[in-house]
Amino acid sequence: MSAVTVTSPAASEPVPRSAADRRPPLLRLTRVELRKAVDTRAGLWLLIVIGALGVVLVVVRLLAGPRSERTLPSIVETTQLPFGLLLPVLGILLITSEWSQRTALTTFALVPHRERVVTAKLLAMTVLAVLMTVASLLASFVGFAVGRTAGTTSGGWDLSAGSVAELLLGQVLNMLLGAGFGLLLLSSAAAIVLSFALPTAWSLVSSLVPALRDEARWLDTARTMSPLFDPTSPAMDGQAWARLAVSLLVWLVVPMAAGLFRLHRREVS
């Protein structure tokens, strides 16, 4: 590289030239991806809607149903519903919007190591999923505290650290599942439809075909992941973890690996 330095006098703010020989750190890329998730109206509103749905469900849960069921774990379980549905969509959009909005062109011209951009996106999603889930937990706690004072709930503060951890893990995986489909298809519509349709179709088929019932318990993410989201259920045992791992291998690891492989060789235009 020739040591030419071309400075525009009008843009006199200096650039840190030594940075030219260093890759942008992964942490910085992750922060940028987090910012991309909230710096458009569409992205911001999707987050707000997911959060608002969670709050609404807390209120509904506090007021509806038999009082014996208005326990903290069941309130928490209810708030996870919108997350379970919408976090995969968020995961998909954070990947595919680079293609639908064609920003991939500038993104990869600044960071040609494409797998680093994807890694930063996955890290950003993990952060988002954890933050959203923590927020939903806080909403549940506040709601439960209010309900308890008002005498509309039953039970005490019986939510184990284990089930909170399972919940966090479950929602992170949920979002990453969406990201896997997004990365494989690179199209918002196709990825959203398929990420809902494929597992549902598989559940349906396996429930109708008796011969597949055993396979279904290992491959149907709706079934393998549901214990993670249900604080009222007993903790996951070894077999439950094994089933979860197998189902994630099929629905998360394989699409993501295939998507990364394709992305590496793919033309960006």
Binding site: R17, D21, T40, R102, T103
Partner: peptide
Amino acid sequence: FRDLPNPGYRVGVLLDASAQHAGR
């Protein structure tokens, strides 16, 4: 290009002015 650690300091690229997120 792919081997440049931080290409923005070496090459300024403008390939398609319309390829920007419309909502930003």
